[in-house]
Design a protein around this nucleic acid. Structure first.
Length: 408
RNA sequence: CGGGGCGUCGUAUACCGGUAGUACAUAUGCUUUGGGAGCAUACUGACUGGGUUCGAUUCCCAGCGCCCCGACCA
């Protein structure tokens, strides 16, 4: 991608917020705030979000099938479960419904999809032979948070992966629940958050009278408090924190959660299957969420320095930031063009800074954007390239071939 | 939802009861070219509604918006 034609504009003078991810993501041109808790993902930000979601998708594919449910739903489905009173729920109405004398034009902007998936499953998964199964989607969710804050950490519109599983027994549900735990940890490990993310016991909230598990990433700016046992590593949300010594307290951000719903929603929608003896039985369900846009915020909170973001390689929007210096020298420009072509051929995602700007501005952008490798082509580099690691700051002058071999 | 703060060019900020300055960005020209370049010129602004006042961007009230603290967070 050539910087000169990319829809990207960094702004070193952008407003600094208390929240690191809000500040750096806006300075770097990853996101643009439209209103409190609502952001546009700009091209380089969307690229990053897509990388995160691709990892989530790959791991979820081992558990279920991807589908896409609507963002909008009729209020009646929510009245069925009695969850219309949840105060984070957005209600929507057609602008002309009143003038058309339609009093029933009420919709919900979905905050989660149990109300959609349960009636769907009921349409064709009715025999015990159909079980178990699971479906998931990655979608924009809406929650009217009374106080949106901290950039992508708590928005009113955000991206979330939600998965739903269906079973004929509680044992089968819990077996799947454990598999989901493993898959979740694989996601967080691939994102570089394996060590800092704790499977945390929490209350079930509105979903269930029983327990649930949260995936809490230890993070100074996190809005939850968890207690981690120093020896066993067991973690508890402060809402269910046990008494006793041996626990250390951490701020953490909830990047995922899983709930054994049991029969709460199948009861509400009268979702039963026919068992082997011909009798109707309630379906057992589980619900599993990962906040993908929040994860992007958490990654910035954890991986940055005073110059900008330091993306883990697995989610970096580009692998290489190619800084072409001495743009007034045609031979050097030609050399940079050739390096870009070569990187493209090697399949290395490259942001080619072909702008007519000073070296300082380009280096500052490379640092701010957090791209893992900065490759410089200038009068000084001759037939080689200068490679700087964003993570370690190590500088190495080497042939392009050597570099490509190293990172592939 | 309670409390606090703040609304000024596209962005970030300053000053002020007598119509507003700077930086970045943008445009043009010249110079510059390894850590966010320099000079010159140009362009652009007081959230909305009421009130006080000869006069309000400034003071007061209300609304709206944003940020922060707390509560909340299925």
């Amino acid at each position: 991608m050539k910087y000169s034609s990319y829809f990207l504009k960094t702004n070193k003078d952008a407003k600094a917020f208390d929240s690191i991810n809000a500040t750096l993501l806006q300075k770097g041109g990853f996101i643009d705030q439209v209103m409190s808790g609502v952001y546009t993902f700009l091209p380089i930000g969307l690229r990053t979000l897509n990388k995160i979601e691709r990892i989530v998708r790959e791991e979820m594919d081992t558990l279920g099938s991807e589908l896409l449910m609507p963002a909008l739903s009729p209020v009646e489905l929510w009245e069925t479960t009695g969850r219309t009173g949840v105060d984070v729920l957005f209600e929507a109405r057609g602008a002309n419904d009143a003038s058309r004398k339609r009093n029933d034009g009420r919709y919900i902007l979905n905050s989660t999809h149990e109300e959609i998936i349960t009636p769907l499953a009921k349409k064709n998964r009715l025999s015990y032979k159909d079980f178990p199964f699971a479906v998931y989607q990655i979608q924009t969710k809406f929650r009217n948070e009374e106080r949106a804050k901290s950039g992508l950490m708590r928005g009113r519109e955000f991206r979330m992966k939600d998965m739903y599983s269906f079973h004929t027994s509680e044992e089968d549900l819990l077996a799947f629940y454990d598999k989901a735990k493993d898959a979740y940890m694989r996601v967080f490990t691939r994102l570089g958050l394996g060590d800092s993310t704790k499977i945390t016991k929490a209350s079930g909230g509105d979903f269930t009278s029983g327990f649930s598990h949260e995936f809490q990433t230890i993070c100074e700016s996190g809005e939850d408090v968890i207690y981690v046992h120093n020896e066993t590593g067991e973690a508890f949300n402060k809402e269910v924190a046990p008494e006793g010594d041996g626990f250390s307290q951490h701020n953490a951000s909830e990047v995922g959660n899983i709930f054994p719903l049991n029969t709460k929603f199948s009861k509400a929608f009268d979702y039963t299957y026919t068992d082997a003896t011909g009798k109707p039985q309630l379906v057992y369900m589980g619900s599993y969420g990962i906040g993908t846009s929040r994860l992007m915020g958490v990654l910035v909170e954890k991986f940055h320095d005073d110059k900008g973001i330091i993306w883990p390689t697995s989610v970096a929007p580009f692998t290489v930031y190619l800084a072409s210096l001495n743009r007034d020298d045609s031979a050097t420009v030609a050399a940079a063009d050739a390096v870009y072509e070569e990187l493209m051929r090697a399949g290395i995602e490259t942001l080619y800074d072909d702008r007519d700007m000073g070296a300082g501005a380009k280096f500052a952008d490379a640092d701010l954007l957090g791209i893992p490798y900065r490759v410089v082509v200038s009068k000084k580099t001759g037939g080689n390239v200068e490679v700087v690691s964003r993570t370690t700051g190590e500088v190495e002058t080497q042939s392009l071939t050597t570099f490509i071999t190293q990172i592939n």
